[in-house]
Design a protein around this nucleic acid. Sequence first.
DNA 1: GCAAATTAATGATTTATTCAAG
DNA 2: CTTGAATAAATCATTAATTTGC
Lengths: 218, 218
Amino acid sequence: MGNMKVHQLARGFWEHEPSLSLGCKRLRPLAPKLQQHTSSTDTVSSFDLKSFIRPESGPRKLGPSDQKRDSSQVETHPGGMRWNPTQEQIGILEMLYRGGMRTPNAQQIEKITAQLGKYGKIEGKNVFYWFQNHKARERQKMKRNSLGLTNCPRNSPPISTITLETRMEIMERSDEDSPYKRKCKSWSFQYLDEQSISPCKEQENRTLELFPLHPEGR
Amino acid sequence: MGNMKVHQLARGFWEHEPSLSLGCKRLRPLAPKLQQHTSSTDTVSSFDLKSFIRPESGPRKLGPSDQKRDSSQVETHPGGMRWNPTQEQIGILEMLYRGGMRTPNAQQIEKITAQLGKYGKIEGKNVFYWFQNHKARERQKMKRNSLGLTNCPRNSPPISTITLETRMEIMERSDEDSPYKRKCKSWSFQYLDEQSISPCKEQENRTLELFPLHPEGR
DNA sequence: GCAAATTAATGATTTATTCAAG
DNA sequence: CTTGAATAAATCATTAATTTGC
């Protein structure tokens, strides 16, 4: 609860970073590029490593002239940083959650995203994350409750009974979540998301040809 | 542990929820969200929950008649379950790792995957996972070493010197990994992977138009 | 009433664990 | 035992609510 004070403070410090003009590389001590080549008894050596390493870590911003990225193709992002769910979206997600959904697979996420897209901008990853977070937080909420009730510091005799029951419920939920039931889960959370299923345009029937993925649970 | 048998049953009940009043709680807030949508206020009810819930949560086994879903669309998975990297692929990946790469972004993964695809079947997620695992395991390996050496249980005087040196190296690497430097990371791990960039076909120059994603650091 | 300061939620990432194929 | 795959836990970061001072 009140433990989140600390970093709040520390937070600000990391921000500076004004340093080094352009590059802005900062941390990440210059990677030890020590190439191996030498040996390279294999054909691999011909691989263009450089091109890969380059764009790494962070927003490059080459060029001294820090042109705000307002160049024009700022990409929709204007102010829209993170997904801000609408009431309808939350409603549907919670409904699905209560319905038992916990870790939807790619196909399901696709469908859900399409549906929720009717009520506001949203991407597949938002759905994915929502379930992850909601599940985790429901879990810790329960844990907190159970602990608080099982050994409630003060005297509260009558509660004991309830406690029992609560625990039961907890166990159920806990199972529901079934940690590691894995088995053909289907990560395949690969999307083409940036599309973000445009805001509210009624793109009603999009063929969804996008996900041939592992259609089945593989 | 073995408590997960009962509620399995309870699952189905949640299905009703016809009205769902999407209102839901959402404790804290309560205000506002006022979507500019206007519409809403209900439409949600028309959501076809059923279709979503269905395929959920793992290997259900509903009902007595357990019809294996082996209907036939077992998907390519035949026997090839997990990615089995070739020597060349491993070589390149390690090279990149030594080069400093730790958590490649979508674009990088795409490029890497394309390259590695020349030496054998591979998907973007394989690359993603490889870096995750390699980073984590290098880390724990170091930790194990440092601990094991600093207080080596048995007597081993001569080793001490070496220990020092090893530690040095460790520190460096450790920093390299820099836990949580975040800042515009770029999740965007969305792919269209299943394609798995065919085995060894020489799809040399693929425009990679696939990732408009968050081109910049958001 | 209103806007800055605080705080509670919660979206987005990364790290730690765990499972299981080979 | 090694390591690819996947999930859970821990964190960070941003936004919505609430509080506070005027």
